[in-house]
Amino acid sequence: MKPQERLLVHHINRALTRIMGEDERVLMIGEDLLDPYGGAFKVTKGLSTQFPQRVHTTPISEAAIVGVATGAALRGMRPVCEIMFGDFLGLAFDQILNHATKYPLMYAQEVGCPITIRTPMGGRRGYGPTHSQSLEKFFVGIPGLEVTALHRFQPVEAFYRRAILQRDQPSLIIENKIMYGQEPLDTVARYGDFQVRRHGQDVVDAELSLTDFAHEEVTLITYGGMTDHCLEAARRLLLDEEIASNVLVLGRLSPVQLEATAAACARTGRVLIAEEGTGAWGIGSEWAAQLTDALWGKLKAPIQRVACTAPVLPNSRALEEQVLPSTDTIIQAVQTLMSRT
């Protein structure tokens, strides 16, 4: 394997290749998918060569991409849509809200609509206000839509196989674009000084600890692109301040399933939720509300949330770093957590 083929983008690519090879109902629909270009982030590279009949490159028509996939799914196909940047997903919002998710629900019968929408979200690449956002919070409130976020500890093929082949309802998969160029850690039991545990099948929550999964004082909950920042914060908190934390990287954003998470939080009683998107009405809002309910009486301090602080993501990398949540802001929030009683 060439060094570059170790990266997460190649693992996704191989997973999609295998899944397409196994099941003729799987279609790829999206912009600029054809080789040699192979998609803006190269996730679908090679697919159009191997499956020329089933990879459909489209005009710049996000609503139609999802709409066509929805119709094909109603008629028995298992389409996978690539939305080039998550920021463009707003154009397809109605198709997701009023069509793909509605059909199985409002027809009140065995009507499946197994579409999978994959899209890269997230900043830290200097792409500016309309190509860097983390907009998943606008989609997690859509009933009937499963929203999952890929993370490096997630076994890749099982994750995509579940969404594409094993579910009958629409799935939205958030791929943080920074992750494409990182190596997957899908099988590791240790990551640096962290021990890694995984909870769940197919869609995995990863729990990491530098200590022993028993004596931590704080639980950091995150998903997707904020994972590395949380891990580095956990490391520095332990080295510098002897504050031990466990980091939970959740794979599923919606529907919310926090039983295992609540159990982990109950050990510490102090919870911080980190997300890259803007905070108000965010992913963390719902998680915090549900965890507060589940942990009432066990919380030692109000749940803290860390999120993007600016209403728009600046193009300048320096400015972007200032407004996106960082290791430092997580550490500060943990200090706040520790100081409150």
Partner: peptide
């Protein structure tokens, strides 16, 4: 121990 050694 392989990871970080704590006060504990």
């Amino acid at each position: 121990k392989t990871g970080i050694i704590t006060e504990r």
